[in-house]
Write a protein that binds this DNA or RNA. Sequence first.
DNA 1: TTGTAAGCGTTATCAA
DNA 2: TTGATAACGCTTACAA
Lengths: 354, 354
Amino acid sequence: MGTDDEMDRMHSSPTARPRRATSYDVARAAGVAQSTVSRCFKDDAKISAKTRDHILKIASDMGYTGNALARSLITQRSNVVGVIVTAFTIRNNPELIYALGEALQNAGNSLFLMVVENDDAIGASLQKAMEYPLDGLICCAQMPEDWIRQFANRGVPMVFFNRLVDSSLVDCITLDHAGAGRRIAEALYRAGHRSVVCVRGPERAPVSQLRVDAFRDRMAEFGIGSIPTVCTDFSYADGRRRFLDLVGGMKRPDAVFCANDQLALGVIDACRFDLGWRIPEDISIIGFDDIAEAGRPSYALTTVRQPIVDMAETAASLLLARIGDPDLPPRRIMVPGELIERSSARLANGSPPA
Amino acid sequence: MGTDDEMDRMHSSPTARPRRATSYDVARAAGVAQSTVSRCFKDDAKISAKTRDHILKIASDMGYTGNALARSLITQRSNVVGVIVTAFTIRNNPELIYALGEALQNAGNSLFLMVVENDDAIGASLQKAMEYPLDGLICCAQMPEDWIRQFANRGVPMVFFNRLVDSSLVDCITLDHAGAGRRIAEALYRAGHRSVVCVRGPERAPVSQLRVDAFRDRMAEFGIGSIPTVCTDFSYADGRRRFLDLVGGMKRPDAVFCANDQLALGVIDACRFDLGWRIPEDISIIGFDDIAEAGRPSYALTTVRQPIVDMAETAASLLLARIGDPDLPPRRIMVPGELIERSSARLANGSPPA
DNA sequence: TTGTAAGCGTTATCAA
DNA sequence: TTGATAACGCTTACAA
């Protein structure tokens, strides 16, 4: 017969006060030392099968589970990986979160998610990430240089996702946004488009900058220096509205390059429902990302595919590899974007539209 | 002059081995007791402004940050909330994650995210959630009764999101899926539709069951007992394909009710691009969720709005309230779905289609 | 106002 | 194979 204390816990009465059983409780109940209980839950532990079974049975009766906090404190390893994402990324690439979660979980890690409104609002999250002893960090947002150094100083490996940071202290995986932007400029130019406009994302959104700036630079090399451009919040509604504002005061352009697919969808609907322009006969529209809707027949958007799930898996393995070996040389992976030609743009050689 | 050890850390040499400064390190450098350092970081602490400033300065020089793990261990409070979501939820309602993250973060909590493939694959995540001393859990998936009891026994508050669980141990917030399903049946019937079909989600997906079963039951009450129904994986592509299979062998139905908007979009495209049926003249289509695409002119889908962001915020405050006071009575909130009439369905009174 | 010391629940290092 | 015992980095009485 055990103490009342033990009885309570074993029969788990409805009013049991919520205090979880500790390895010490199990040890007392099993009549062994606490350290022996601890050993039961390690694979390589030297422990007799008999005591192990005995303890395991009692532990399960008491509903004992190890305390990850206490374990992390002593092992100096939390098996928790932080992930920082912006609202936009979460909205537009929900697959990223899922893929990251799966990859991390499959490797025995947990995901500590920090959401931020945009790249500039990352401060508070970083503070949290510092206080919490994370094993690593996957950051899908820009980070100030001094924060990067601080994490590095503490030995917290980081990989940046779609943010190419100029530091030898971290790993990066990013789509070749600029390359794809140039590629689109070339395709559009070759097909005869001369009067083009751009619909960007937010002023300071890195991927928007990369994509659109490269596009504009390449166009400039072709002698097309003046490209009316408008900023948006990356959304369908804003893309549609601002595009209308933009073209309201000008002659119809030949083509429009949008910093992402949501914007392109908005522009397509602006053409179809607000302006009565035919796509692609009157105007060519190109997006970026290849989100699910882009492939549907109602839009058939020509765009650049960003293999977000593959990239997420790569990001996770980069991080896990570095957690395993912090001395790995810094790696920066640049994934080429694939131009997916559907029917929202005339890309074949030809004369410019009427 | 301090020891070499201290110098290293203070000047943070490039090769500094990654060991984060502890409150003890700060105490040594400041010439005070460790507990005094600890006190500096509490609001109500009794400590002289002078020593506080002195310590704070040194702490910041050393890049000291509290260790959340150690703190949680002693305070028995982690300020971490677990969130369990299925792949489908994350894909189809990415806003949920963001809203949850924001609400939790604003209240000073962190988000521990566990993704699961579907409601049946929740086991491993629950194990993690048990070992990690979470302050609470928001579960957007079904959970076996005995797990619920275990969490309750440990005093971990839980709120279920869109899963109505029959337990007085937890809080729930859910849309009134069944009510909305019935409402749609009524609207469709009143408008004269008699030959209807359903496109469901996965066999065992709770929200799909609730929505479709209620719809079918209500239709049965109207004397419409035979409703051809097909299961899908909740995706656009599967909705489109299976709908085609379903109607391949039958006379054109008057109306189709889809368990979510993605499916409805697929069905619309099947009608438009594969079958050449006009919407809503030939066939009425109704979805569920009111995702962003549903409102766009290319689809103009009639659907039921699920105020996912409001619900997320409510879920967070339910949980936070219970963390603050565990003795609160169990609450179950049922949010009514709002029927959004657009133009994919004829809902006015009238005769059935030709 | 400050310092001392006892935990929190583990893992890890020794002896036994 | 097991049992003491010392960390891990903090908070919190209690003493000074």
